Amino acid sequence: MGLVLEKDYIQYFTNNREEFQESLLSEARNVRGKIEEILLIGNIDLLSNAHKLVMYTIQGKDHELEKFAKIEGVSWASHSLTLAFKLEWVHAIRRTVWKYFQEFNKLNHIELEAESFFNTERQINDRIDKFLNELFLSYSEYKDNLIESQKTLVENLSVPIIPITSKVCVLPLIGSIDTYRIDTIEEKVLLEISRLRIGTLVIDLSGIAQMETEAIERIMKVMEGANMMGCECVITGLRPEIVRKITTIGLTFESKAQTKATLQQALEDFLR
């Protein structure tokens, strides 16, 4: 649904585009100094995009407005531009649009009846609100997908199963092992044993400085699961402090895995 006197409004905004932009920049003072920077960072022309938003709003092009909002959301998210900054810019556009509607009506001696005014107000504000809503959804969806892909990458890097031969693989663990990471280790190990048909998995713990009791017990269960799938486990690089903790809680690796002093020793044995 278009606005009352739509063509006249469009012509007025088009003819006064430069003045509109100056007025807009005076409304969004924090944005003014960032115009060139944003153009360089993300190839985003704020002024051109503001004009496009105004034209889609006046012309009632809801489909184009929604599509434009989604593209804008992805652009801002992919270049890590803040939503607060965008929100300030769009609200400045809204205020400037209403300022120019008032000037147009004054110049042309138009006095809108209450019903016509509120109808126009509803159309303009609803479309700008819809633009913001779609932009925020698009922005959030892009960020969520990015976080998920980064999470998957980190998980894969935190459980790097390295093939040595067609049947022997190494899992070097580094850093600390918490409940979340042990869940990832268990899932990744069992999946990779099935996928790669691993016969022997060498788990190197030389990079683990500390393991909580729960993590030790879960490592035991990982080895049990591997054994059930026909994969032999070999533990290397156990540090004295971890060995003491294992013996203190009455556990042993003997029934579940071989132990070797170092990863090098294990590889020499299996590659001999």
Rank of each mutant, 00 (worst) to 15 (best):
R32M: 05
Y180N: 10
E134A: 14
L65C: 07
I110G: 11
I41W: 03
E217Q: 15
I110D: 07
E88K: 14
L46V: 07
N119D: 15
E18S: 12
I44N: 09
I128N: 04
E22I: 07
S206K: 07
C233Q: 06
T165M: 02
C231H: 05
I10F: 07
E192K: 14
T96F: 04
V222T: 12
R195W: 00
G73V: 13
C169K: 07
Y142V: 07
T259I: 06
T200E: 07
K167A: 07
K245N: 12
A92N: 04
H91Y: 10
T179D: 10
R127E: 01
Q11I: 11
I58P: 09
L65Q: 02
E254I: 05
E37A: 09
N227F: 05
T262I: 08
L132R: 05
F104S: 05
E113F: 10
H79I: 00
E141N: 12
E268D: 09
V154H: 06
R127N: 04
I174F: 08
L173R: 00
L153W: 03
E212C: 02
I124A: 07
E232L: 09
R94S: 13
K52V: 13
S194P: 04
V154D: 06
I246F: 05
L47D: 06
I208T: 03
E19T: 11
F117N: 06
I235M: 08
T120P: 06
N16Q: 10
Y100S: 05
E88I: 11
N119C: 07
N119P: 03
N43P: 01
I177P: 02
F68G: 10
V168C: 01
